[in-house]
């Protein structure tokens, strides 16, 4: 079973993406998903997609870069509102990967 590659994105790459990072880590562990996570700034998305090759992007900010990688909003990881839906969405994206 390969590791899934998760990229957490926010405006600065250090604030809300850190909270998202922690939240998504918990979801992965709970669901027995083996993972690698990085965090980056929204402006770095295009270059990071090329080098890190994520399976999924969790973002707390709109991403302008065009990418074929599925993007899921990480706002529920911050506010707790809609967290179950986020978990379902993430598992749906990752179900073919793990």
């Amino acid at each position: 079973m390969a590791k899934v590659r998760i990229m957490c994105v926010c405006g600065t790459g250090i604030a809300t993406s850190t909270v998202a990072h922690d939240g998504i880590e918990k979801i992965c562990k709970k669901n027995g998903i083996d993972f690698d996570i990085i965090q980056c700034k929204a402006l770095e998305v295009a270059s990071q997609v090329g080098t890190f090759k994520p399976d999924i992007i969790i973002s707390t900010t709109p991403i302008s870069a065009k990418t074929s990688v599925p993007i899921v909003s990480g706002i529920p990881l911050l506010t707790g509102v809609g967290i179950e839906k986020l978990e379902q969405d993430v598992l749906e994206v990752l179900k073919d990967k793990k």
Binding site: T12, G13, I14, A15, T16, S17, T18, V19, D22, Q39, L78, T79, G80
Partner: peptide, 21 residues
């Protein structure tokens, strides 16, 4: 927020998220 390093402030950010709920 005046943030210097990401992980140091994780707890603080999480606390803020809890407060605002």
């Amino acid at each position: 927020l005046a943030i210097k390093e990401p992980h140091m402030q994780l707890k603080l950010l999480q606390d803020i998220m809890e407060i605002i709920q």
